[in-house]
């Protein structure tokens, strides 16, 4: 590579950083990517993507009211988030309605309230779009300080309660049986999720914040089977998506929120296709090369008959249930190992 190319690349990377509003934008998007990455890991594991989307929409009226009153919109969003997460938890407890339904009612109603409030403003269209899609170039120093403070709180609490939250996500009955209040932990998590969403609204906007919660975490899940590694990877992917997306936005004139989300989506696509053990292309190639792959049967068929065929030496497995070249078929007591190629 020529010196000119490297120099040009460096200039290209450094140029945006010479402007204050871009410095703020970079710090903000990295904070958001990391914090949403961590919270998002638990969102995906608990299957709460819809809840995340709903919360993002439901805090909208808080943002609008703060805007109308001339207060900091983060404060309005925070207040709305706390109220909404408590309401969702309470309605979910009532039993007759499914949680999904409760969320749907609340989120659509709140969002409509926000739109109604903002439609009375003179600058309706511009204001609405800035809330929906973010105004990352308008992040002030005080916004950054608030984002960092809220984000640090979220990460600290998540870190302290990581085992408890993991237990409540993995085995709810056990968590309850060992004396935990699922309601309390669910509320705690909803609150952390709301805070993560609130600090993301300015940078990626109301609509796309879901992607920051779900996409990096989903990508990380494809790459590892370990929760700690998944959380770290998710945060890393969120931060990298933010930085790369912002550069793309700067040079291509693409809306920043969309650019960041598209970057995260592209990273997901790469992992989906080429992840070392789970990628679609990777496993297809491996199969073609005649490497029997252990992940093929990582979701073993349920054995409702009470007998695990793999445990019976010499037993004939049901056709198609387990490949007859299954290297572990004869030795159920051994951990699944990668088979050596023939």
């Amino acid at each position: 590579m020529s010196g000119w190319g490297v120099g040009g690349l460096f200039d290209g990377l450094l140029d945006p950083l010479s402007r204050t509003f871009m410095q703020h934008a970079f710090v903000a998007i990295v904070l958001v990517g990391v914090i949403c990455g961590v919270t998002g890991a638990f969102v995906t594991l608990r299957g709460l993507a819809f809840m995340g989307d709903a919360l993002a929409h439901a805090i909208f009226p808080g943002v609008v009211i703060a805007f109308v009153l001339g207060a900091n919109f983060l404060v309005g969003a925070l207040i709305a988030a706390v109220i909404v997460s408590l309401l969702i938890g309470a309605i979910g407890q009532s039993g007759r309605l499914t949680n999904d339904t409760a969320i749907g009612v609340l989120f659509a109603g709140c969002f409509a309230l926000g739109v109604a409030l903002i439609s009375r403003q003179q600058t309706y269209t511009r204001d609405l779009s800035s809330f929906l899609f973010g105004t990352i170039l308008g992040v002030s120093r005080s916004d950054l300080a608030l984002t960092a403070a809220v984000g640090a709180t979220v990460l600290l609490v998540m870190g302290l309660f990581r085992r408890e939250l993991t237990m409540a996500a993995f085995d709810r009955v056990f968590a309850q049986a060992s004396g935990r209040s699922l309601f309390a932990y669910d509320q705690l998590f909803l609150l952390l999720l709301s805070l993560s969403i609130v600090i993301s609204i300015q940078t990626v906007g109301n609509i796309l914040v879901l992607a920051m919660l779900v996409t990096p975490a989903a990508t990380a899940r494809l790459l590892t089977d370990r929760l700690g590694v998944m959380v770290a990877l998710s945060a890393l992917i969120g931060g990298v998506s933010g930085v790369v997306g912002l550069y793309v936005s700067y040079y291509q004139g693409i809306a920043s929120g969309a650019s960041v989300v598209l970057t995260a989506t592209a990273l997901f696509a790469v992992a989906y296709l080429f992840a070392p053990r789970t990628g679609v292309v990777t496993t297809a190639v491996a199969r073609r090369l005649h490497h029997p792959f252990p992940e093929r049967d990582r979701f073993p068929p349920a054995h409702d008959d009470g007998i695990d065929p793999r445990a019976l030496p010499g037993a004939v497995a049901a056709p198609g249930a387990i490949g007859d070249d299954d290297p572990t078929a004869a030795d159920s007591a051994a951990p699944r190992r990668r088979a050596t190629p023939a």
Partner: peptide, 12 residues
């Protein structure tokens, strides 16, 4: 608890 109540794909 019963095994069926658990998400066995959980990364743990």
């Amino acid at each position: 608890p019963q095994r069926s109540g658990v998400d066995w794909s959980f990364p743990v």
